[in-house]
């Protein structure tokens, strides 16, 4: 697979403070890479470096095989970037703005109009194309921001927290749009929202305190996410002893009168047993939730694993 973006040993120090250290990122054609981390982990700093807005202290960035630091002009042609705050001129109309962006990104006169038409259609901006950007809702402004990043059909699209500050419906629409963008471009997406990564990305990298902790496929992350416990609510609850007699259950935690959390060995899932017993013994099952770890838990788990492997 051709690597469209490759960053090696990327690091950035702000005087004494180390913001990002030794991060390696690569992105293949047609891939969506999720860049996950809590606030302040160095996500935006990394995104800024990848987009050429911030020079790294050390490391190398290749976009489409062109060194971003040596030949910024020719490398940036292959890249579209949406920062955290979409960079828009509120006094222009959507169409004017996108035409300007197309020219900025060195589209030729012949291809400019068709490129702008196409991006307006793709981003669902047809109805608002003659309205001023300043009057649009935040969701539409975000769309214009994405349109700006893809108008010149770049190989790599870098989106920095594209759904922050939007309402749930807008978030869904923007995610849908990103999914569509991913059909034609390789995308790097930074976010602190885990479900977003699970929905959109093929591969995920987790960063915390400026260091890369985890880099694998989304499936591998899911196994990390899977906690070995299940929460169950039974209207006609049996005693704790009866529950612990179920095969595989190692511990029981009583949350409320009829709500329990059953812990089990990862290789020995008792859920099936639990359900069949609930039916035969008339426990009246109301709720059964497989616990998943939150992003913070996954971080903790991955951090702990890192520490453990260091000790070993």
């Amino acid at each position: 697979m051709t690597k469209l973006l490759e960053a090696t040993n990327l690091g950035k120090n702000f005087s004494q403070h180390i913001a990002v250290s030794d991060i390696n990122i690569h992105l293949c054609r047609g891939e969506v890479l999720g860049f996950l981390g809590p606030n302040g982990a160095g996500k935006s700093t990394t995104m800024k470096m990848l987009s050429g807005n911030l020079a790294p202290t050390h490391g190398q960035i290749l976009i489409n095989g062109i060194d971003l630091l040596e030949q910024p002009k020719s490398a940036k042609v292959h890249m579209g970037y949406l920062p955290e705050t979409p960079p828009l001129y509120s006094e222009l109309t959507v169409r004017e703005f996108l035409t300007f962006c197309g020219r900025l990104k060195q589209l030729t006169k012949q291809s400019l109009q068709s490129a702008v038409d196409k991006v307006i259609e793709r981003c669902g901006l047809g109805d608002v194309q003659h309205r001023l950007i300043g009057q649009l809702s935040k969701g539409f402004q975000q769309r214009v921001g994405i349109a700006q990043a893809i108008v010149h059909h770049p190989a790599v699209v870098i989106l920095d927290e594209p759904t922050s500050g939007l309402d749930p419906i807008q978030i869904r629409e923007i995610r849908h749009l990103i999914r569509e963008v991913a059909d034609e471009h390789s995308v790097i997406l930074s976010t602190h929202i885990l479900p977003e990564v699970q929905m959109l990305c093929d591969r995920v990298q987790i960063i915390a305190h400026g260091a890369l902790l985890f880099s694998d496929t989304i499936d591998a992350l899911s196994t990390h996410m899977h906690a070995s416990s299940v929460q169950v609510q039974l209207a006609n609850a049996p005693t704790v002893d009866e529950l612990s007699a179920i095969d595989g259950v190692v511990a029981i935690q009583t949350i409320a009168d009829s709500t329990f959390r059953l812990h089990y060995q990862p290789e020995n899932d008792p859920t099936e047993q639990l359900v069949s017993q609930a039916v035969t013994k008339g426990w009246q099952l109301r709720q059964l939730i497989a616990d998943t770890h939150s992003l913070e838990d996954v971080f903790m788990k991955i951090v702990q694993r890192e520490d453990a492997s260091k000790d070993a």
Binding site: N53, Y81, P83, P87, L88, C101, L104
Partner: peptide
């Protein structure tokens, strides 16, 4: 102030 500078700095412009 509008944070629109990245538009120019991430474009192929020096």
């Amino acid at each position: 102030r509008n944070q629109s500078l990245p538009l120019l700095t991430s474009s192929p412009l020096s």
